[in-house]
Amino acid sequence: MQASHDQLLWMYHRMLLIREYEDTLAMVYFEGKLPPHIQKGLAFDIGAGTIPGEMHLSAGQEAAAAGVCVHLEPQDSVWGTHRAHHFAIAKGVNLDRMTAEIFGKVDGLCRGKGGHMHLYDPEVNFACNGIVGAGIPHAVGAALAAKLKGNGAVAIAEFGEGAANQGSFHESLNLASLWQLPVVFVCQDNNYGISVSKKASTAVESNVERAAGYAMPGIRVAENDVVAMHVAAGEAIARARRGEGPTLIEMKVDRYYGHFQGDPEGYRPKGEVRALKQSDPIIRLEKQLLEQGVLNEDQVKQARSAASERVQVAIAFARASAYPDAAEARQHLFAE
């Protein structure tokens, strides 16, 4: 199933938007992180500044999100992780409200109660989760709901290679296969669970090998290539929609930033990220689009500045939003 020009352009624009978003947050994140009261010896104060709390950025993983979400409808759901901005943006989460949430503001998706690891946008059926592997069975449940309702929706569990060593992963794959549910498990191998490499944590070379243990197809996308992911995800999602059950995909992606912003990354070989960027998925697609004449240089420039402008609008929206009223801390424990 070859990507159409429209699909290629959609993926290109989304990937640009994600990259621009993450690179912008990476800088905004340090605003106010060195308040005058900071203790001597600390590099910065995680809880201070424009973006409070930890920050896990997804730059380098855009192709996974774009290659999957290009096939999705609003009623399809995505269940992500602590590092899920790429899928949120690709799924069409409201970027202004997402940014306000990340800033802890009242106009955020969750009125400032969730933060960047816990973004919920029911309008496009997106949720993400701060506990590694915890969201995987949620996708299975969404797929079960789709099956029981007969509405044709598909659920996506997106997670990292580290999550594939959690029990929730294995329980979820077994159950989804047993019940032939319309769910696709998208494992993104960025080679690191915080500091521990895949080799040091995982008994199999590729998690795709584990698919056989649950009697489902496994597809390996061995390069950080959105066109290849588009094909793999297209097959898996079509299978799910046909009622033929789940698929496990493992895609090679790269994590350009640290586990969290400010991570000294002592565990990473020097120059690794620079080397990884030689096969950057956005540049790869951009080259292809230029070579095929789908885009010209002017259009590339235009696309890049449009992404940048869109991100600036979102940042401005978040800056302008107010913090929630103190009384809201005690609200929303239960649905009314």
Binding site: P122, H138, V140, G141, L144, A155, L175
Partner: peptide
């Protein structure tokens, strides 16, 4: 069997599945 489902011995999957289904409008 569609509405009264025997599951494997997988408590995490049982509760996680219930969460996902509930978030999508079911009442597990």
């Amino acid at each position: 069997a569609e509405r009264v489902r025997d599951t494997p011995i997988s408590e995490t999957a049982i509760l996680g599945t219930a969460l996902g289904a509930a978030a999508q409008g079911m009442r597990p």
